[in-house]
Design a protein around this nucleic acid. Structure first.
Length: 403
RNA sequence: GUGGGAUUAGCUCAGUUGGUUAGAGCACUGGUUUGUGGUGCCGGGGGUCACGGGUUCGAGCCCCGCAUCCCACCCCA
């Protein structure tokens, strides 16, 4: 037997119901916020991710499905969604067109990691990207949208916030942090030593307890923001407060992708195991120019659909449509024609075999039909059909024409 | 990449110190007078006990290997 690759799952039956319910709910809300669907390729040039996600990130460093195709192109299955959307935005020259452009997407992402609860090699994200809005109100709007989507699905969360600064305040902060790291270089772990030269900010969320103890005294970016970043961060907090969205500040929230600046946020669930981030995002004002576009402010987020699946409160399933069955072999042809007609307007299930009434009622119940319609000898003689409403338990006999 | 656990029917799981033909519940399926479902009753099918070796008169059970899954580290959605 051939089975699916490690970390790559089939989605069907009840899982599929939940999956599509989420997509539909999120799509509807994104529409209300004025976002439009964008589909980008699953396969992109490797350089796109190296330049956007960043070579220092784990994603690019060790998790990409990268290979050389038959035309000798170095390509990658996308590990995340933002890079492709930004590439499309630039390629369609929307950066030069100016104005505001808002997109949402959903689809498969690929990361070569060891699978565990809430972590797959092929997983699905729903994400949005907003281009051309520099205002911090848009950052708040992103968070409100995530909150709305989670709310509509009945999912509880904790929201963590941080500011990563901008090109004014980040570089000097980085320098002072590097000096600090060097001051205790002998005591930190190997990973941190590597991070010092690749992406020093990342040492802050090192899980090693010795390191954490040392970093207690490290300079915090949040205390070294320039006035613009500081003002925006204060404003963001105020907007969230005004709109009843609770948050906690996590100064160690740095996020694994290099392109973020200013607002960074993560939505956490405490009910799904150790892979607890259900949504994450932030501002990435420099990314469009890093990818050779005209400088354009941007902000976005992504949600991990598989992680949300078990948290979604599904609406109650209602009985729907018809089940049609025959009690006499002579009636099967008629049942077939009736079903064909009914399907123009209603969900209809039929049984090709003549059975007794009880069997048909059982079967109708099992497919969750609203009505069970049966044709037996009596009905055949009179050109009628017997119909029972399985919800109200009422029954009638109708002329075939009026069924 | 590093640990730990698991693997017996479609699913969830029993299976005694190693001893006949490996079980249960659910699911599936047939019947239950040609007339009433979701909740009655009676039947039925379904297993290379993950895979490969080894020990033994004898292995689902013990030993070794391997694969896969799960959980965690790491990182993230």
């Amino acid at each position: 037997m051939i089975s699916s690759l490690r970390g790559m799952n089939d989605i069907l039956s009840e899982d599929y119901e939940r999956f599509t319910y989420f997509i539909n709910t999120a799509t509807e809300i994104a529409g209300k916020y004025g976002f439009h669907f964008i589909e980008t390729p699953l396969l992109e040039e490797t350089a796109l991710f190296k330049r956007s996600v960043g070579e220092s990130s784990d994603i690019v460093g060790k998790e990409m499905y990268q290979f050389i195709d038959k035309g000798q192109n170095d390509v990658c299955l996308r590990p995340e969604g933002t890079a492709g959307v930004v590439r499309a935005f630039i390629q369609k020259k929307l950066d030069r067109a100016g104005g505001i452009h808002k997109f949402f997407y959903h689809g498969a992402m690929f990361r070569y990691e060891r699978p565990q609860k809430g972590r797959l090699r092929q997983f699905h994200q729903f994400g949005v990207e907003s281009f051309g809005v520099q205002s911090v109100y848009e950052d708040a709007t992103m968070i409100m949208m995530v909150s709305d989507i989670l709310g509509a699905c009945g999912i509880g969360y904790r929201l963590q916030l941080n500011s990563l600064g901008d090109s004014n305040c980040m570089p000097p902060y980085r320098d002072s942090l590097v000096s600090f790291i060097e001051s205790c270089e002998d005591e930190i772990c190997e990973d941190c030593l590597r991070r010092k030269s690749t992406n020093p900010i990342r040492v802050l969320d090192c899980k090693n307890s010795t390191c954490q103890a040392l970093y207690e005294n490290a300079p915090k970016l949040i205390h070294n923001l320039c006035s613009t970043c500081q003002d925006d961060f204060e404003k963001l907090k105020k907007i969230l407060q005004d709109n009843g969205i609770a948050y906690e500040i996590n100064t160690n929230l740095v996020r694994g992708l290099d392109y973020y600046s200013k607002s960074a946020f993560e939505f956490i669930s405490d009910n799904i195991g150790s892979q607890s981030a259900i949504a994450g995002g932030g501002r990435y004002d420099r990314l469009v120019e890093f990818l050779d576009g005209k400088a354009t402010p941007a902000v976005g987020f992504a949600m991990g659909i598989e992680r949300l699946m078990e948290l979604i409160q599904m609406p109650e399933v209602k009985r729907e449509g018809y089940y049609i069955g025959a009690m006499d072999d002579e009636a099967v042809d008629l049942v077939m024609s009736l079903a064909h007609r009914k399907r123009k307007t209603d969900k209809t299930t039929i049984d090709y075999k003549a059975r007794n009434l009880k069997s048909h009622l059982k079967a109708a119940d099992k497919v969750n039909a609203r009505y069970c319609a049966v044709i037996g000898e009596n009905e055949l003689e009179n050109n009628t059909v017997w119909v029972k409403d399985l919800e109200n338990k009422t029954e009638t006999t109708l002329k075939l024409e009026s069924f």
